[in-house]
Computed example of a mutant assay.
Amino acid sequence: MNQELAGIGPRLRIARRDRNLTLEELAGAAGISASTLSRLESGKRQANLELLVPLIRQLGIRLDDLLPHEVRDPRVRRSSIRRGGLIITPLAPDSSPVRTFKIDYPRAKRRPAKRVHTGYEWIYVLNGSILLQLGDRDLILGPGEAAEFDTREPHAISATQEGPAQVLSIFNAEGVRMHTHGAGDVE
């Protein structure tokens, strides 16, 4: 039996159970026997349009809902970006609603200028230590520490003078533009 057709029965069973219907209730409403529906759901009877059309009408679903959906390759294959001494590695597809990056900060030689932009940022230190300048505060975060902040507050992030650091950073689309493109860069 075709792989696509083999999955119809279990998906039909899930749709029926999601609507809290018994075999007898759905079969009766669709004008087929409960044993036929049971065999269809268990894969012992091959699906055909004559059986499926009345069932999907009663369930309020489309025939496509019973067919397998193409599963996209979950691997992320994007190049790292080098900017201002940072190595910024995208960890999510560009189309993802969550913008996630691994950022490698070199050992700090001086404090970076604070920036302000819309959104929120979340950072998690993987290794090394970072200096988070947030408003009037200077915070040192080490491995395993995290911070979340409103990016409308003046802020800057850098490794400390002791050595490089690596963080996971999550922010909105405006934060991505601010962190991956300089003022003169073209998107």
Rank of each mutant, 00 (worst) to 15 (best):
L66F: 04
I87Q: 13
G28Y: 03
P68K: 04
R110Y: 10
A29I: 00
D65S: 08
H179C: 02
R177I: 08
A108D: 07
G144F: 05
R62A: 13
I88C: 08
L21Q: 13
Y124D: 14
P68I: 01
G28I: 00
V71R: 14
S96F: 07
V116Q: 14
D73Y: 05
S96P: 05
L131F: 06
T36W: 00
N2F: 06
S33K: 04
P10R: 09
E25G: 00
D18G: 14
D18T: 01
N172Y: 03
L139T: 07
A6F: 03
V116N: 06
S129W: 01
L40I: 07
K44G: 14
F101S: 12
T151P: 04
Q166C: 14
Q166M: 09
N48P: 03
E148V: 12
P54S: 04
R39G: 00
N20E: 12
V186D: 13
K44P: 00
L86V: 01
L67Y: 05
S38C: 05
A173H: 12
N48I: 01
D64A: 15
T160W: 11
E4G: 05
R11H: 02
I103H: 03
G163H: 10
H179D: 10
S79I: 01
I103P: 07
R62H: 11
S80N: 08
N172A: 11
G31M: 08
A113Y: 02
T100L: 15
S38W: 04
A30D: 03
K102E: 15
R72P: 02
P54D: 09
R99M: 03
L63W: 00
Q166E: 15
G7D: 05
G128T: 10
D73I: 01
Q133N: 11
T100H: 08
L52N: 09
S33E: 11
L51E: 01
L55F: 05
R16H: 05
D136L: 06
G175E: 07
T118R: 13
L67H: 02
P143R: 15
D136I: 01
H181E: 13
V71Y: 03
I157R: 08
G60A: 02
E162G: 05
L40E: 10
A27C: 04
A173G: 01
Q166D: 08
G175H: 06
E162H: 13
V186H: 13
I56N: 07
V125P: 11
A6I: 03
D138Y: 05
L5Y: 12
K44M: 04
Q58S: 10
M1H: 14
I32N: 09
E50F: 00
K114V: 09
K44I: 00
R111H: 07
V53A: 11
G84S: 12
A47K: 02
P106M: 08
F171D: 10
T118F: 03
E4S: 14
L5D: 11
I87Y: 00
E41A: 06
I103Y: 02
L131E: 15
V176A: 12
A173M: 11
L141F: 09
A113T: 11
V98E: 06
D150S: 10
